[in-house]
Design a protein around this nucleic acid. Sequence first.
DNA 1: CGCGCAACCTGTCTGC
DNA 2: TGCAGACAGGTTGCGC
Length: 281
Amino acid sequence: MPELPEVETIRRQLAPRVAGTVIEDAEVLDPLWCSPADPAAVEAQLRGRRIEAIGRRGKYLILALEGERFLVMHLRMTGNLLWIARDDAVNNPYLRFRLALEGGDSLQFVDLRRFGTGVVVDGRESLDPYLDSRLGPEPLDQSFTPDVLRSQAAGRKAPVKAFLLAQDRIAGVGNIYADEALFRARIHPLKPAGRLRRDQIERLHQGIREALEAGIESFGASIDRYRDSNGARGSMQDRFLIHRREGKPCPRCGATIVKIRAAGRGTYLCPRCQRAPARSA
DNA sequence: CGCGCAACCTGTCTGC
DNA sequence: TGCAGACAGGTTGCGC
């Protein structure tokens, strides 16, 4: 569900509203949300702290608190982080975590499938290893060049689709934007990542960026549960070129879009634009 | 270390 | 209609 564009949308919305405010109260309603940590301990670590900034790394959303303390959250499949104005009554059965903010507004972590997580990390020297051990380069950073992509893919025998989903290779790309990027690059999802030619790497680099940027421009994709911090849907699902368009015509050549399974995930492609890799053996 | 897959959890859709 | 099974956008841990 929430991939880089969706998390970035939430970050941009929340930044002006919560930066500078104090957390008056923190409530972990589902112990699974912060397991294996003790919910009461997590609540105590957050209570009374001022929020200095809100950041993102890959699909992680990070509240930077005073005193170099960080609340690192992940929405996983069905998580939403909602900003609720004071006096707005909300009774959501899937509420897992809540921050009451100075002034009466609140942040509410709502998550049907309960995969979403939150963890408190103390000190920049702890935060960076936490993130960097899990995440590869940020695909929208200036420093993410075709050469970086090529070195990340070098030697990989796994299908390029699996490669794009591996967060320690490239941060923030999920199932939706992997399909969109591969279509833009005209690369078959089952092509081994390490066997991409230089021109294919160039196209994939551009495809990743264009797909993610389109997602951000459209405020994310709301196929199912995803909502932004206002509870509103994004519109990227209306701009999909290939994802979830099985049986429809390819926007480039008109051939019928097919669905296959790659890296264990539903994967959509144009059989004419994205030619199957040559079978070895 | 690389890779594939089951598991985590709940709701919804599909096919018999 | 009812129900079992598959599937859903993510990540982790385990086995090979």
